[in-house]
Design a protein around this nucleic acid. Structure first.
Length: 926
RNA sequence: GGGCCUAUAGCUCAGGGGUUAGAGCGCCCGCCUGAUAAGCGUGAGGUCAGUGGUUCGAAUCCACUUAGGCCCA
């Protein structure tokens, strides 16, 4: 009756349906289907109704292209947060959003339409854009869902939804109401050929030949008070430029405040230029010799004036940080209407944004000599005129990178045009925003400094774009007198129209249909109006996304949290904040959390040219979304995140370890009915209580880490617990007890109780990170009263009471140290071919008093603890604990593989030890 | 050129003036074959990016440099 095969059958070996091979790529989609059929997201929301809210407001990705690793990182992080806050007990709805309008889609659609566009109306083109956006929303939605992200995917917010468009205008109305909106000039890239403004994305840089000229501006101010040596001299400032045609618009010369400038005499004249460039320029201008008469800083020159080289006008000396000594003279010709830096400097000094050039690039009538001339054609004329007048010091030609129109390939110019702005300073918007920044919690902390620096230096917000795929700026122009009709009330009225009909209404309806009936021009009484043909900057649209909040108590404003990459300090965090402060008098977010960018294995940015781009879809189809999620959990995402083959390999291995640990726990619970078999705490063995106490400590750390958004601590804590505490120690040690004890014995039930609790707790703690696997394992768990249909309907485990006194924990810690010592000794014995399996060993401790007492206290459990067959403990007089390893005595029990002198003593069960014989006789059902 | 950030073992992370810098994974070697495309053990891996400074003492504080990242120009 004691055939070996039967003995094996008498063991309680693990059994489970939870497969070792995860096959995530196949299984994950099935799990998503299960979640869908459960209506899981809705059920979670339903279950949490009435709980305090935690709102993570989604920043809308652009509805263009497939998701990349960075988008995946972002959405997975958000999902960690939403799932963990939910399991902490919050009502944490997640409404995903998409940014739908804007240039990238319009350009793409433009390309797709080609010549067909010419016959299409604005409405038709906008419809094509809309379809294009919807297509990618669908694609991205599926990609996000595939990552295991929970959210209201059926009702996302889209910036092109009528209701959303209305909200945008209502925010704009607030800015009108506070008087922060104004119309002003600003230089933009302008294509003379296409007669249109171009965005940076529509610019191609190509080599172009331009004139390179040095020009003299005769000094009007007197420097002789401060520099007597200059008294009576003929002094000029030298500038260098490659765009002679912008000279008619020159209003200033910029100097760097801190650089040194020389007044150098050559011949009978004195020239001012940067001291460090003096030798270079002297060479360029073929000065045979020169003499430095004075040295001053840029700061010394501020406010002085020179005469324009060919127009009877002054040019004022200003300071600017962007002045460099890379080329030129360190004295920079400044035309506020024709350069962005020039423009900012112009604003700072209150200069006119002077742009005497029309849409076709011709000088306006007011420009003497060159009126009507195309600017590029004017270049040689201006040069030769200056030469004649002696203000030209040198001319040459340079080849440099110059912006060209993407469509017609012609060189473009910078030209100030009328644009709509939000003033940062009229109503202290900048100051208020800076105050608000201090109240926000920034994670990482340096985000505060970063965004504050930007807010301090950002210019007024140019909110208009000369495009059609977006939300129109609801302004009207009197056809009679040109009066601009744009205010809070009209904006609100148009918002109401958009609410019903969408922003297409702007193009479908006439001005009189959009305006209040009988609207007259306040200036001239006229009643015919033209509609504005500019649209809003899309940053204003996405920055208005917090408009979806505050409409119900379950989705309150402001949000608790915004989470995006750190590029958004200038982008969405910035625009959202300005709109929040400007229109709602406060920040739309309480906490702002940023993550880094995804880099390749060497730490370089992923780019097409480097060919190092990793597609999330590729990882998912080969390894599963869980692997990507594990990657996000492993990282300190606040810094830039690397991804590559080795990292992937580590992830796959880590996943297997976690999965196998859960599998082993499940395998040992196949016959455990929690409701009836679970033992109360007092009946649990000390080792089982120890693992539960360790699990409790880990729970503490993990929950705190979730609170702090420190997911890598969650992962590393749990993973260490899995590998060190569970796999390498506890689960290894209790195998004998689990396999060989009577199936329903207290010994086994005690272990099963601990395993059941550890499994349930770790599944819930890990559920936000590994939602697929945790749920799969949850299903495989034995059924019990009130067991939820999904782990995602559970809360995190409660803290609970300690399972063991700290003193006992310390004693066990000491035993674990001894265990390490034992393992080192056993390894030596193994090398010496004395033992193989540790059960072949017999340990003899020679222990000084204190350790002796400890070992005696745990005497009975020592063989199990060290997984050996025999342990002897002898006292020693002082000294250190020593352990020696020998062969265990007796025969090998064929059932439990322990060595024991008792093997063979029981005639009924001759092949087994005393313990196994007892189990077989009394504790087996068969 | 400017603002902000990063650099600790092959990988992912700890440590933030005071013994010989830690963990897990990976790697080497071995054990087991009742978690088996699993499990266990031993061991080897580090000029804490570099240089200079502060200090009795620096991976840690400061400056600069190098390499990288984001944003802006």
């Amino acid at each position: 009756m004691s055939e070996p095969i039967d003995l094996k059958k008498s063991l309680n070996l693990p059994q489970t349906s939870f497969a070792m091979k995860a096959q995530l790529a196949q299984k994950e989609p099935e799990i998503i289907k299960k979640w869908d059929s459960l209506n899981l997201y809705e059920r979670i929301i339903q279950k949490q109704k009435g709980r305090p809210t935690f709102i993570l407001h989604d920043g809308p990705p652009y509805a263009n292209g497939h998701i990349h690793l960075g988008t995946a990182l972002n959405k997975i992080l958000k999902d960690f947060i939403v799932k963990s806050r939910t399991m902490m007990g919050y009502l944490s709805p997640y409404i995903p959003g998409w940014d739908c309008h804007g240039l990238p889609i319009e350009i793409r659609v433009d390309q797709l339409l080609g010549d067909r566009k010419k016959e299409m109306s604005v409405i038709d083109i906008r419809e094509e854009c809309r379809k294009y956006a919807l297509k990618f929303i669908d694609i991205q939605r599926e990609e996000f869902r595939r990552l295991g992200v929970f959210g209201d995917w059926k009702n996302p917010y889209l910036t092109m939804n009528p209701g959303y468009e209305a909200d945008i205008l209502r925010f704009l109305a607030e800015f009108f109401a506070s008087g922060n909106v104004y119309k002003g000039k600003r230089p933009v890239h302008w294509c003379l050929h296409c007669q249109t403004a171009l965005a940076e994305a529509e610019i191609e840089y190509k080599e172009k030949k331009s004139p390179s000229i040095y020009v003299r501006f005769p000094l009007l101010s007197d420097l002789s008070d401060r520099f007597p040596q200059l008294r009576g001299k003929k002094i000029s400032v030298i500038i260098w430029t490659t765009t002679p045609w912008t000279l008619p618009a020159n209003l200033a010369i910029a100097f760097h405040p801190d650089y040194e400038y020389s007044a150098a005499e050559t011949g009978s004249e004195v020239f001012i230029l940067a001291r460090r460039l003096l030798p270079v320029v002297a060479e360029e201008l073929s000065w045979g010799s020169y003499r430095e008469l004075a040295v001053m800083t840029g700061r010394d020159l501020e406010g002085l004036k020179a005469r324009h080289p060919f127009i009877n006008r002054e040019s004022v000396f200003v300071l600017a940080d962007y002045v460099t000594l890379d080329d030129g003279t360190g004295c920079v010709h400044t035309a506020p209407g024709h350069g962005y830096d020039d423009y900012l400097t112009g604003l700072a000094y209150g200069l006119d944004i002077y742009t005497p050039v029309d849409e076709e690039g011709r000088f306006l009538a007011q420009v003497e000599r060159y009126a009507g001339l195309n600017v590029f054609e004017a270049n040689p004329r201006i040069v030769s005129d200056m030469q004649r007048e002696g203000t030209l010091l040198r001319q040459a030609e340079v080849s440099h990178s110059y912006p060209h129109c993407w469509r017609c390939k012609q060189p473009v110019i910078f030209r100030a045009t009328e644009q709509w702005f939000i003033s940062m300073d009229r109503n202290d918007l900048r100051e208020k925003t800076l105050e608000e920044i201090k109240k926000i919690r920034w994670i990482p902390y340096w985000g505060e400094e970063r965004i504050a620096n930007m807010m301090k230096s950002r210019p007024d917000w140019c909110i208009s774009r000369q495009r059609s795929w977006g939300v129109p700026i609801p302004a009207f122009y009197c056809e009679n007198c040109g009066y601009i009709l744009a205010d809070e009330h009209i904006t609100r009225r148009v918002a109401d129209v958009f609410e019903k009909h969408g922003s297409n209404a702007w193009f479908e309806k006439s001005a009189s249909e959009l305006l209040p009936p009988g609207q007259k021009c306040p200036a001239c009484g006229g009643h015919r109006f033209k509609k504005e043909n500019n649209i809003l900057d899309v940053w204003f649209e996405s920055g208005a996304s917090h408009g979806i909040l505050g409409k119900s108590p379950e989705l309150p404003w402001p949000a608790d949290l915004y989470v995006e990459g750190h590029d958004q300090y200038r982008g969405w965090f910035n625009s959202s904040l300005v709109i929040g402060v400007g229109a709602r008098n406060g920040s739309p977010y309480r906490t702002c959390l940023t993550h880094g960018f995804v880099l390749d294995e060497q730490g370089r940015a992923m780019s097409k040219s480097l060919g190092n781009i990793v597609e999330p879809g590729e990882i998912i189809s080969r390894h599963g979304a869980e692997i990507l999620r594990l990657w996000v959990a492993m990282l300190n995402y606040k810094e830039d995140a690397r991804f590559g083959q080795e990292i992937l390999q580590r992830l796959v291995e880590a996943y297997r370890k976690i999965r196998n640990t859960w599998r082993f726990l499940l395998g040992n619970l196949y016959d455990f009915r929690p409701d009836t078999d679970r033992l109360p705490a007092v009946e649990l063995l000390w080792l089982d209580r120890w693992i539960l106490e360790r699990a409790r400590q880990v729970r503490q750390r993990v929950i705190q880490a979730y609170e702090d958004y420190e997911f890598h601590i969650v992962f590393h804590s749990l993973y260490n617990f899995f590998t060190v505490d569970l796999s390498a120690f506890y689960l290894d040690v209790i195998k004998d007890r689990m396999y060989c004890s009577g199936p329903a014995s207290k010994l086994r039930r005690s272990g099963q109780t601990a395993m059941f609790l550890v499994l349930g707790n770790t599944l819930r703690l890990m559920a936000p990170i590994l939602p697929f696997t945790a749920d799969e394992a949850w299903e495989a768990m034995p059924d019990f009263k009130d067991k939820a249909g999904s782990v995602h309907l559970c809360s995190f485990p409660e803290e609970g009471q300690p399972w063991l006194e700290p003193e006992t924990m310390q004693k066990i810690e000491r035993l674990l140290e001894i265990r390490e010592q034992v393992q080192k000794e056993m390894e030596k014995a193994r090398e010496a071919r004395l033992i193989g399996n540790s059960l072949e060993a017999r340990l003899v401790f020679i222990a000084p008093e204190e350790v002796f007492d400890l070992l005696e206290e745990y005497r009975a459990d020592l063989p199990a603890l060290f997984i050996v067959s025999e342990v002897e403990v002898k006292p020693a007089e002082g000294g250190k604990l020593t352990v020696s390893v020998g062969r265990a005595s007796g025969q090998k029990c064929e059932r439990c593989w322990n060595y024991s002198p008792s093997v063979g003593q029981d005639p009924d069960y001759p092949a087994v030890c005393e313990r196994c014989a007892r189990v077989l006789r009394y504790e087996m059902k068969i």
